[in-house]
Amino acid sequence: MTAFMQVAGLDHRFGGLHALRDCSFTIEQGRITCLVGPNGAGKTTIFNVITGFLVPDEGSVAFRDRKLDGLRPQAIVRAGIARTFQNLRLFADLNALDNVMIGIAGQFGEEPVGAIFRPLHTSRAQRRRRQEALATLDHVGLADRAHDVVRNLSYGEQKLLTVARVLATGAELLLLDEPASGLSAGALDAVMALLRRLQSEGKTLLVVEHNTRVVQQIADDVLFLHQGHLMAQGTPERIIGDPALAEIYFGGAL
């Protein structure tokens, strides 16, 4: 049996920094996998490689038996993998609805010829897409904020909006970079509930997360990364309960 997503032998250097060292792992469909490790372990670098923003020195990524190597980011989204960013990267001047609509694939009127010469068809298509986007916003609990400009949303709402934007792409595998960091207790519960709901709807999640309590509550699988190498893989109980890993994670000596 082949894995849903397979990362094999990733190796990458930024100048003198060896960010990824022969890093390999697999992701199973329908599960929530948490990627943990100390700062600088290479978690975001792995996201950048999988989503095509960084071409690794060596190694390859396969998704549903298809090699993704050399594909541009937009092609990888179409293949079914979409990501969020740790620093959100929302479109601050656009409203929440428009932020979600940017994620929707294959819209009519997304090039000038259609927009200018078939305006009625464009607006009809837009109306349908707007309903889709509103449903997606409703799904993450932001329906009442649809017409608010991003800069007026709270940090927690902005985090939910980044999830709505990747959901709009229709991707099956969602890569979420620290969706729970910096949130209040209430917002944290909302995000965790959302992640479980996405899983129950058939999405597969790969989540970078620092908060061990969050990891214990949502993860089916945990990948422990250290100095760009996969040190351990297992259930949250096993990884978090391992004193050697805890030593590394909480800044102990090597």
């Binding site: 940017i102 694939a105 997304e110 259609g114």
Partner: peptide, 22 residues
């Protein structure tokens, strides 16, 4: 049209536009 929205989004953050599959 969606094209206008796409162009405004590009002005704000090209990387995020690519990550949204455009």
């Amino acid at each position: 049209a969606p094209f206008g929205r796409l162009l405004r989004a590009i002005r704000e953050d090209e990387t995020a536009v690519a990550a949204a599959g455009k």
